[in-house]
Design a protein around this nucleic acid. Structure first.
Lengths: 228, 228
DNA sequence: TTACTGAGGGTACTGAGTGCCATACTCTCG
DNA sequence: CGAGAGTATGGCACTCAGTACCCTCAGTAA
């Protein structure tokens, strides 16, 4: 029944557009009663995003079992679940992407979905950063950054028609965040020198208390430059 | 007319709630015709956010004239415009906050507004990072991080009933992002030293190309520590 | 057989948002 | 002063999403 409604709806959406298709049109093509539509989908928009609810619970379940490991790495893995869901049906994802780009109400719905992912990730990080006085803020910002990076990679893939390697594009975007962020705040809690991310960047970030004796700063620099 | 409608609407919203108040109720209390409501507000939700449209154009105008200065600093200043708008009417902002927290459709509307701010900031950054191969991604992530930090500070203030110093809370949140982020990518383009944020934080961030001669790094440190 | 349950269907209703037209009011030109 | 043009407002009727309520028709247990 769900499948029948989704199929009928998408046919009509591509034929006449989302807004010019009424729920009556959909149930007429599907051959079911109008009332049944709203039994399976709480709104007309929901039929366009039939799989996000499941993905959200998957993400929650994944995070619930990931109690150790670098928090930022964990939520990157969680974000990859979303990309995987999109990659499972490239044609469907691309069709939906084109539809969503043009219909304001669908954009609004998508925003609310993305927001729920972001809240899920932020909630996890807040628990992991429970001791940190800046933990709540850090959780918010990191979750937002990871979601933004994920969506950037995802959209790049979608714009390309879903032909390239989506997960790889997302990985690269996520790596960018971890590279510039993951290392820097490592230092923020230790109050001393910190090493850069990894990979092929050739810069080093050093954090030290202002007014610290200069020799100590140089010491940290030497230590930092030494261990690569 | 706008003011009359807004006032009537908020009275009814606090009396009976947003969803149980119909547009007919609003126009009846305001003493105007129903059709006039939709002339001034495209939807029932818009009456709750009467000032965001102006703030968005203000932000665009501000960014259009800010062609130099550190990009991250510029969009921080742009974000502060939003906080200022909230701070201009604390009681109204808090009433709206409480309302928005409880009504799903208002939350959805707020998400779309936040998203437009984020797009505006990202658009600006994308132009500023035009040369950078990672510029587009960096723009997305930084815009998202700044918006998240701003909203974190804003919500803290709103939860406190609008009594504390909102702009200060936002400043602290924004400083957190610049501290852990703003400095790291400075090095990506200039390859040399960079100064910290400002205010009362007592840490200094120094960035230098790895493998640079050590004396040059120390030189940068002395220069950085000197100018405060 | 009856009684219960649960999925689907039908009808009528509320309320947001729109299109169209009528009615003022105002400003300008003659 | 008055005619005409442009503009703000009100009123009416309509579409359509979403909901409440009730109906039918399985299948099933007793």
């Amino acid at each position: 029944m769900r499948e029948v409604l989704i199929e009928a709806a998408f046919q009509l959406f591509v034929e006449h557009g989302f807004e010019r298709t009424t729920v009556d049109d959909i149930v007429a093509r599907a051959g079911v009663g109008r009332r049944s539509f709203f039994r399976y989908f709480p709104s007309k928009e929901d039929v366009v995003f039939p799989d996000h609810e499941r993905c959200l619970t998957e993400m929650s379940a994944f995070l619930a079992t990931s109690t150790d490991g670098e928090p930022l790495d964990v939520i990157c893995d969680a974000a990859r679940l979303v990309m995987r869901m999109y990659a499972a049906n490239p044609e469907f994802s691309v069709r939906r992407y084109r539809l969503t780009r043009e219909v304001p109400s669908l954009r609004g719905y998508e925003l609310s979905v993305v927001h729920r992912y972001e809240r899920t990730l932020a909630h996890y990080l807040r628990q992991r950063y429970a001791g940190d006085p800046n933990g709540a803020l850090r959780a918010e910002v990191e979750a937002a950054a990871i979601v933004a990076a994920h969506n950037s990679g995802l959209r790049t893939w979608l714009r390309g028609g879903g032909h390239g390697d989506g997960p790889k594009a997302v990985d690269q975007s996520l790596a960018f965040v971890r590279q510039t962020w993951g290392s820097a705040d490592e230092s923020a809690e230790s109050g001393a020198a910190a090493a850069p991310g990894s990979e092929e960047d050739d810069v080093v970030v050093i954090v030290a208390p202002r007014k610290a004796p200069l020799w100590r700063v140089v010491q940290k620099i030497e230590k930092t430059l030494g261990d690569d």
